[in-house]
């Protein structure tokens, strides 16, 4: 197995162009586990650790934030909690402190596992992913178009993930995840919500609920229409929202949980996170008034 170690982004792109079969590795919290278990035996590893550009983030003029694919979860929590609360909450649930020091959103996107904790909040908040190749340059892929199948994403063989972009926080965001222990657990299923009150819109993201992370469009549309955006949350509306989120899932029975439980739990998490978000939204509206 070859171990490629570019020291700059340009070198990394060149290496990936030359060796498209090389498997990129950043924190190694997923790739190394699979190597150790013999799941993969790639011909080459492309170590992005030395590529410093990937470990930086910057606010953009329009208020959005561009975060390098190599910024570890621990830094997302410490430095970006106010700019992306949903993602920061998800980051807090990733593995152990050691894993959060190493693991990155770039790794989550590269692996494209439906259980990746970063996907639901990125979907809910309307993220876009910046990918790049030496031959064709940069392109931006909306999160909704990135996940193609179980552990398959829209990356071309010569492309690398450069960064993700999130729009400015428009309202409350929450992330919630089911695990059968109280820390260090892969999601049985997970849910994220983001309110955009000025647009009277809601974003959702579901994890471990289908072959890919996904949004519950019908639930989003229902809530946008049915909710009284200037009033309290109607319990029946919240209940229906939960049902529609559950219905959006196409979960499976596996060793971590049953399909029936996943659908049920997604509904409960959707209802609860909506209530928390709505509470924050109303509090914010009242404080402004």
């Amino acid at each position: 197995m070859d171990f490629l170690r570019p020291t700059s982004w340009e070198e990394a792109l060149a290496a990936k162009a030359e060796r498209p079969e090389a498997l990129p590795i950043q924190g190694g919290t997923d790739v190394m586990v699979e190597l150790n278990f013999g799941v993969h035996r790639p011909a080459a590893l492309l170590d992005l650790g030395p590529v410093r550009e990937l470990a930086t983030w910057e606010p953009l003029p329009d208020g959005s934030v561009r975060v390098g694919a190599g910024v570890p979860y621990a830094r997302l929590i410490a430095e970006l909690g106010d700019r992306m609360p949903g993602l920061a909450q998800a980051a807090r649930t990733v593995g152990s402190p050691q894993i959060r020091n190493r693991g990155t959103v770039g790794g989550n996107l590269g692996a494209a596992s439906p259980a990746g904790d970063a996907h639901p909040p990125l979907l809910a908040a309307g993220a876009a992913y910046e990918v790049e190749s030496a031959a064709q340059g940069v392109r931006s892929i909306p999160a909704t178009e990135f996940y193609l199948g179980v552990k398959r994403n829209a990356l071309r063989p010569d492309e690398l993930i450069r960064a993700f972009r999130l729009p400015p926080v428009a309202g409350p965001q929450y992330f919630s995840k089911i695990g059968t222990r109280n820390a260090m657990v892969i999601a049985v299923c997970s849910f994220s919500i983001a309110l955009f009150p000025s647009e009277r819109r809601v974003g959702t993201g579901l994890g471990s609920a289908a072959p890919t992370p996904l949004r519950a469009y019908a639930a989003e549309e229902f809530l946008a229409d049915a909710a009284d955006w200037d009033g309290d949350l109607d319990e029946a509306v919240a209940g229906r929202f939960g049902e529609l989120v559950g219905a959006a899932a196409s979960p499976i029975d596996d060793v971590r949980g049953t399909a029936e439980y996943r659908r049920h739990a997604l509904g409960v998490m959707a209802r609860r996170t909506l209530a928390w978000a709505w509470n924050d939204h109303r509090k914010g509206a009242l404080e402004c008034a």
């Binding site: 909450q89 807090r92 649930t93 929450y174 992330f175 919630s176 995840k177 089911i178 695990g179 109280n182 820390a183 657990v185 409960v268 998490m269 609860r272 209530a275 928390w276």
Partner: peptide
């Protein structure tokens, strides 16, 4: 959250 079922996975703020 660490005092509640689910811990920082934030499945409840006390509901249920």
């Amino acid at each position: 959250l660490r005092n509640l079922p689910g811990g920082v996975s934030q499945t409840t703020h006390g509901e249920g």
